[in-house]
Simulated scan of single mutants.
Amino acid sequence: MPIRDRSERNTHLWHWPIIVYSKMFFNFSAGTRELVIVALTFGLAVASRYLIEIPFRYKLSALRSGGIVTASAAALVILGCSTFYVSHYQNHSGHFSDDALTLAKFSQYHGTDEYYYQFRTGSCFIDGNDASKGTYQREQCLKTSTTGRNYLLIGDSHGAHLWRSLSTAAGEQVNLIQATAAGCKPVIGQTFSNKCTELMNYIYTEWLPHHKLDGVIISARWLPQDMALLQTTLTRLKSVASNIVVMGPTIEYSEALPDLLAYQHDGRTDLVAHSVDQQIKGMDQRLQRLVSQQQVRYISVYNIVCPQDRCHALASNGEPSAFDYGHFTLSGADDVARQAIVQMHRDIFM
């Protein structure tokens, strides 16, 4: 079998221990960890091919069995002691503190009653790729008020996680309508079709042109490839709606934030700060320039969560601000919404 094939097979032996120990011993930043893992995986695969596999297969008679056993035993002892030190000595004999466990429980936030209350999953927030997650309820979710001011929130899951908090922060005189779906972005002109794109096309091409609103808010997990379609969407939207606001990307972490907070609480200093996706700041700045060129109001969620680049992983009540890589808990969304509404009041909630 060619050497290349054997080296590729050897990567399967190395990647899991490298992933595990890179998390245990090092606080790599988001992106850096992945590069280190890939480099070490292939480097060790090639090294083990020439230093272990070939000698054992073809030069076994020239090796001293006693030396092999001694070296292998020493390596296992060193690895075992290192693992024991980190997992038991540094972590209170392998047990998390009560405070750390309280933080970690928020990684199970998805599917709780508070999660459904926050997102309105299955009715006003649907999964565009999964028929089992409900159907968008137009009568309920697009109901306008005859006495208050009507605003529409269009978004994916990074719009849905803000709806409840924005609605509460805006006050009783504001009726915040919700049109959110996972599986696409809240833009016009997407080249695929599912329940999410069907909802977005309906909102932009059928519903909005026939309903007079006081404002529109667009929020999503924005990526570089979304820029062109967002620009097109804003151009068309301005012809049928006024007081448009785009909310920028949410801060993201390399792992679920509650887990990071739990490990950090029990000794992993600066783990959360090193796990922040540094690309979000650049995306926020690019998006702000694009939106400003369209003369549309922009709310930087990054600047709210990370004032002066110091990101707040805990909400004001002490709970994790997110329950996974970047979706806000209700308390985290409340903190963001209160500041966002203050900024929006300057232009649209008047």
Rank of each mutant, 00 (worst) to 15 (best):
V46F: 15
W222P: 04
H95I: 02
L153T: 09
D127M: 01
V301K: 00
E252V: 00
G128M: 12
A182T: 10
Q173V: 00
G122H: 05
Q118N: 13
Q231V: 02
C311F: 08
L260P: 08
Y89L: 15
A333R: 08
D113Q: 14
E139N: 12
R310N: 15
I188Q: 14
G66W: 01
A315D: 11
D334G: 02
L271D: 03
M24R: 02
T168F: 11
Y89E: 10
E114I: 12
A181T: 06
A169Y: 05
S193L: 13
A256P: 03
F323V: 01
Q278D: 12
Q343W: 00
V272T: 14
Q108Y: 06
V46R: 15
D113G: 07
S93P: 01
S165N: 04
D324V: 05
D130P: 07
Q190R: 07
S165E: 10
N303W: 00
Q90D: 09
A313N: 08
E8G: 12
T135F: 07
T197D: 13
D259N: 14
K238S: 05
E255F: 12
P186K: 07
N303F: 00
Y325V: 09
R310F: 11
H110D: 09
H88N: 13
R4T: 14
A71G: 06
S61C: 02
N175Q: 09
L208F: 01
V46W: 15
R149I: 01
S48V: 05
P55M: 03
T146R: 11
A73E: 01
D270Q: 14
R338N: 06
T180V: 10
E114V: 13
I54S: 07
R49Y: 15
K59E: 08
V20S: 08
D259M: 13
G148M: 04
V305E: 10
P249L: 00
L271P: 01
Y85V: 03
T112I: 07
S321R: 12
D347V: 08
